[in-house]
Write a protein that binds this DNA or RNA. Structure first.
Lengths: 340, 340
DNA sequence: TACCGATAGGCAAACGATTGCTTAACGCAT
DNA sequence: ATGCGTTAAGCAATCGTTTGCCTATCGGTA
């Protein structure tokens, strides 16, 4: 038994013709006359041999690979899982397949993965870059390979396609909601990412408080790593150092998960003893007994928009103008905030 | 400015040699004498031109693509997300990239996706097949392309690599736990998948009850679609038709999520009014205020085992004996079951 | 002097698909 | 009889890498 995929030549042989003709038949090119008889015979041969075109070979002649690369920092973070899900659905419809890699927010790893993707000559990139994203994507940008950046920005440059959350608004609506319920002593827990755009969440927290006349002394923000454990640690720290706080705004769902674990461990009742709002909408905020007030960033839509934009760029022949798409967020009221 | 990746020939030209020599230098082949001077010069040229090998071209000459295909039915189901995550980590370490596709449990879609993957000539497959998996993977199996089946079986055949959960045990330990707490009127909610191995969960539910002397009349099972909505519907049905039940065993986390939403909507207290055990361990069962008793299938480990097995098969030169790896599950005690 | 084993590297043929160039037969009009 | 448009399909170059085969120089030895 043959242990390899059938080639054009195999099909040609069986159909009594040459590879060229088979290629023309299978690509349904209209630029060439093919007799009905020949067409039939080729199609039969192809079916009988289970012919499957080798995309690697055809891409050598300039055809598309029909492959998209997706790079995310935390694949298991539902924010990203949903972006990937949306991307997959969009590209699936157009016959593409997705290659997905986890950078773990590690710049070296990102470079390594981008390298592998470039070896595959994928047609386009959807990427949530690390802080070294600008350097790591330099070659791609030089070559003009289609790329859409999602969520986090490429720092220091401006001419790239970007789809992101209105981060400032996320922080603002979250804080505003707490204030509207009468809270005046608020804590913010965030990520010390060093990424300017993300820091807007915290800035907005302070701005909202100021805009509503709250005293600066009642406010506190603490920043740490982008993990559950750090969320737990920072929550414990706030509880210990600022017992007068009546509400917490979590800037990131991953940290919120750990933080709320801390509240549970200490037997703190939500919302009676402490009110909580979370930016982000992982499944758990409203599953089972949970019903947390949170800010929905529209994860799935973000993914759809990024994917559609990338598709446009890929098919756009260099003519799609650079744009930044910024998606509004919405507050979803749950039962984790009490009125004071 | 050049708008394409540098080729071996480009590098050769700059280094004052030929493509062959460059290839030998870059592949660090020891079968060829290369002067230190030439090596240096080639490496410099390659760096200066940002040379990145085209894996498509080199695979034409029989090299590995360094690509793995992963097909799952529900990417956003954390059971599968974790399997993918584990697979990614294992293969990343070996320089592979993953292509991931969502079949949505649709056989036609599965066939279509497999076709695209085969066009890419990926080196191996990790697949949770649909019911038509046997037919859809026929060519792959004929050609001997490395493949590991995960979770669900290929129906009707036996000679394939398989990594799965001990489904019977999942059902058994879940039911047994409820019985040990004094429950005698139990409901099981499951999936009418028609997949023999999965049906063992329900069979075990009845077996455990029988083994512990429970009356068959106190037991009821209902099966439906593999969605949240169906979980909701079936739960409502059981509540209406069998109000005497004191405990529910959910066979699948997706259905459990909808089912528990139903219990919440009706204001049913867990565990005081109704006890609940869930097979599977999505994040939400123990996040926030939730602490559901559940059966942990070791999703991540399942993925690791599948990935490692596939790696073995890929590197094993056809010598790895067919095997079925069946992973034990463990009951994780929460607070969703009351003692009667 | 003739020969041999290292050392070094060029040449060209694959791999599978695509496509421009060419040929050839046919029918029909000049 | 010549020419031309139409229909049909073969030939061969090409994409970027890999690798077997060959050549050429050098120092040393018989």
């Amino acid at each position: 038994m043959k242990k390899h995929y059938a080639t054009l030549k195999d099909v040609a042989e069986r159909a009594g013709t040459t590879a060229a003709t088979v290629s023309y038949v299978l690509s349904e090119s209209s630029t060439r006359y093919i007799s009905e008889e020949m067409r039939r015979s080729v199609l039969n041969a192809a079916r009988e041999l289970n012919y499957i075109k080798c995309s690697g070979a055809s891409s050598l002649r300039g055809k598309k690979r029909k492959m998209i690369a997706v790079l995310v920092p935390q694949f298991e973070n539902q924010f990203f899982t949903r972006i990937v899900l949306a991307t997959e659905e969009v590209f699936d419809r157009h016959g593409y397949i997705l290659t997905i890699c986890n950078t773990f927010d590690d710049a070296e790893r990102e470079q390594d993965i981008l390298n592998r993707m470039q070896q595959q000559r994928v047609d386009g990139y959807i990427i949530t870059p690390t802080k070294e994203g600008v350097a790591n994507t330099k070659l791609l940008r030089q070559l003009g390979v289609p790329m859409v950046v999602v969520d986090r920005p490429l720092q220091g440059i401006d001419d790239y396609y970007w789809v992101t959350t209105r981060n400032y608004q996320c922080g603002y609506v979250g804080a505003q909601y707490l204030i509207s319920k009468g809270h005046t002593r608020l804590g913010f827990i965030g990520w010390d990412s060093g990424i300017p755009d993300l820091l807007n969440r915290e800035q907005a927290f302070f701005d909202a408080a100021r805009d509503h006349g709250l005293a600066r002394e009642g406010l506190v923000a603490v920043d740490g790593g982008f993990t559950m454990e750090e969320g737990y640690r920072m929550t414990a720290k706030l509880l210990d150092e600022r017992p007068e706080l009546t509400a917490l705004l979590y800037g990131y769902n991953i940290q919120a998960k750990g933080g709320i674990r801390c509240l549970m461990d200490r037997g703190i009742n939500i919302p009676d003893a402490l009110s909580v709002v979370i930016i982000g909408s992982p499944e758990w905020v409203s599953a089972g007994k949970n019903n947390f007030t949170h800010v929905n960033q529209g994860d799935y839509e973000l993914g759809c928009k990024a994917a559609n934009l990338l598709l446009e760029v890929i098919n756009g022949d260099g003519k799609v103008p650079v744009k930044h798409i910024i998606q509004e967020c919405t507050l979803v009221e749950g039962e984790s905030v009490c009125a004071l």
